[in-house]
Design a protein around this nucleic acid. Structure first.
Lengths: 135, 135
DNA sequence: CGGTGGTTTGACAATCGTTCTCACCAACTC
DNA sequence: GAGTTGGTGAGAACGATTGTCAAACCACCG
């Protein structure tokens, strides 16, 4: 690691493509795969390369503007989210999602990890069930 | 669903290959990918096809004898497990794993889900961090 | 304006984990 | 020992994701 490494964070330009992805994300509130988002954009008349969709989603996820998680097949799925830390209650059938917060869980995971000497903690917690409408 | 559906569970034969996979699983206590397990078996002199390793792991996971979860890249990773419900504290660097239990978390997820009218609840919770040895 | 250097993009190839296919093998039944 | 059924292996196929690289774009400068 060189000492001359001033974190050269490149500026993020609001290009047409990035705006299209953001617009698509604003159009639904469940989790969608990158390919579904790509289709959605196409269907709206815009044309954005699939690779660009992936790149943009990755950038947004890193910036904390979208949530990314994995469905049971291991595919990445995304949706825009509020900016506070939270988890999801997801309908197994229709995908309807509720954001939930659980300060107690945060405290518990940190306590457990510290107790075992683990540092630099992160965690994943997703709840799956069948929503009232799907029952 | 026909009423004449006596769950035609095929018998699981203890073949040489399945024994080899089980033996490999007994040889480590962190999470490993299918390919790593396959390599492990080869290195022990046995020869088992990769597809068979996948098939066997899937069967064992369904039977509840191994845990399967996904690392951050979406790859499936496995390890043998105790038979009670539990979660994992996994080292991001070396994979060292601690099984943890959290009755409070179980109660919390059920409460939250019920509150929102969701039924038939399941959840995933994994904690990642850096273990003492890797710091 | 016209150049200039860095960023972004898109088409497509490449990767890589996982599953499928299918011919063959092994165990069990009659 | 012939038939039946499940299990296996090699390799092809698949599908999500990432890499490549030349062309397009943009902000800025003179």
């Amino acid at each position: 690691m060189t000492s001359t490494d001033p974190a050269p964070r490149p500026p993020v330009r609001p290009t047409r493509q990035r705006r299209a992805v953001a617009a698509a994300l604003a159009g639904f509130d469940d989790f969608r795969s990158a390919q579904e988002i790509h289709d959605l954009i196409s269907r709206q008349g815009e044309s954005v390369g699939l690779a660009t969709v992936y790149r943009t989603l990755a950038t947004l996820a890193e910036a904390g503007e979208v949530d990314m998680l994995r469905n049971e097949d291991g595919e990445a799925i995304w949706r825009s989210c509020s900016d506070t830390h939270h988890h999801h209650l997801v309908c197994r059938t229709c995908g309807a999602t509720v954001e939930v917060e659980g300060p107690a869980v945060e405290r518990w995971t940190n306590a457990i990890a510290t107790e075992h000497g683990y540092a630099d903690i992160s965690h994943t917690l997703e709840i799956f069930g069948t929503c009232p409408a799907c029952r």
